[in-house]
Amino acid sequence: MSTPQPAGPGAPPDPPPGILARDLHRSFGTVRAVAGVDLTVRRGSVTALVGPNGSGKTTLLLILAGLLAPDHGSVLVAGADPGSSATARSRVGWMPDAFGTWDSLTAVEVLTTMAGAYRLPAGQGRARAWELLRTVHLDDLAAAPAHTLSRGQKQRLGMARALINSPEVLLLDEPASGLDPRSRIEMRSLLRGLAAAGTTVLISSHVLAELDEMVDDAVFLSRGRTVSSEQLRVGVTERRWRLRTLDGPALQRWASAARVTLHPDTDAPDGAGSVLVDLTDDAAAAALLAAAVGAGVPVVSLAPVSGRLEQAYLSLDTERR
């Protein structure tokens, strides 16, 4: 669960992590796709897997899903080795970044087939398939051939397919690509709901703003290595905020009187009316806003310049391949 447990004398020991990878390596010929990944994903958390193109995200997820054998290193997913254990397979859901759909199978048949592949009894599989179709809002397209679905609809069906076995660990490779804004929001709340119920979610994406609003932790990959693991929801992170006002000089006067350090905003289109300010947390932002407004500065907006993930990503020395 994502709620921290009180560490007392009688408290149970920390639950084992949902995903644990130690010193993973995997090469394809001369390409070192994964070259030293250490990864711990807390049970019941949503963790972002972020990295430039070719940094090994898909390869890492394949190893975690038990499809690729690592050259070196050890993996535990949901407490078992995904490469050799049926237990791990039954507990993992995997959604690849590129996948096909079977010709001429309807959406509901795709899901019942997957349920059969997970050895669910037929009746139970059908019930689960319909439940998931309703979850991803494809129930009115249940009888449509799956390959006639639109890209976003296929993506939603792929998500339902990854959930068919009620996995403890969910591995998602760019699941939001092709989704419309509403579907993205729904996916976000779906994943948060799953995490709240104890599912461990590892999600790779390039849309950091979107990840920002749903992930607890983030893992950054660069050239096949984990370069930083962060717990975003925990701890204080000083962020840069943009403050916009109608009266630039008035703001400057108030700032120098109140001893607030302002940075020039080089990206802003409206010049002096927009400045940057470093703040430790939301409370500091609220206090700053109240003080400025109280001093008569006509403030238009105060908002973070970039998402926490984006800021963290850009501050890392990651390289595109």
Binding site: A80, S85, T87, G235, V236, A312
Partner: peptide
């Protein structure tokens, strides 16, 4: 910016897979 590295417990041995129907996925059904 403060970042928190998730402790990786380098010395901690990986817990073994619980005994279960682990062989069933290898057979034909």
């Amino acid at each position: 910016m403060t970042t928190f590295d998730v402790p990786l417990e380098p010395g901690h041995p990986l817990d073994p897979a619980p005994p279960g129907p682990d062989t069933s996925a290898r057979a034909i059904s």
